[in-house]
């Protein structure tokens, strides 16, 4: 990994880190969901600071070609998107159930009000 690439990776990691801090500060991102991003940023910084880790990774995984690295990055991204999809689905189910129960409670309340207008 040459110096130019290391600087770019560091810059991207720092940019991600700043975005993460901003979202956390604005309470747009909950801490448990920030963990995966913190891990990704830490990994990027470690690889940029210690390029030998890349060589170790290559020795372990056998990924010598750029295409293999791209595949690895794609797999990581896919995992992160899967995580986001799971979260979105869980919240979607909860929102639908809340909406249904809210509508039914509202109908029950209106029915009670009609039955006893003075209440």
């Amino acid at each position: 990994m040459n110096t130019h690439v290391r600087i770019v990776v560091c810059a991207v990691a720092v940019a991600f880190g700043l975005m993460l801090l901003l979202f956390l500060r604005r309470r747009q991102l909950r801490p448990e969901y920030a963990l995966v991003w913190t891990g990704a940023i830490t990994l990027m910084l470690l690889l940029a600071a210690f390029p030998r880790l890349v060589n170790l990774l290559v020795a372990i995984t056998g990924m010598v070609y750029q295409s293999a690295v791209i595949l690895f990055v794609f797999a990581l991204c896919a995992l992160m998107f899967m995580n986001v999809s799971l979260i979105a689905c869980r919240h979607g189910r909860r929102i639908v159930r809340l909406t249904q129960e809210l509508a039914i409670l509202k109908a029950e309340l209106e029915s009670l009000k009609r039955a006893s207008p003075e209440a």
Partner: peptide, 25 residues
């Protein structure tokens, strides 16, 4: 009729399920 008004469109499945939940409740 009695009416349960969903605040936004849930689609046939969500609306149908609302009727079923109402029946159980």
């Amino acid at each position: 009729a009695q009416v349960v008004s969903l605040p936004f469109n849930l689609g046939i499945g969500g609306a149908s399920q609302t009727g079923q939940i109402y029946a159980i409740a």
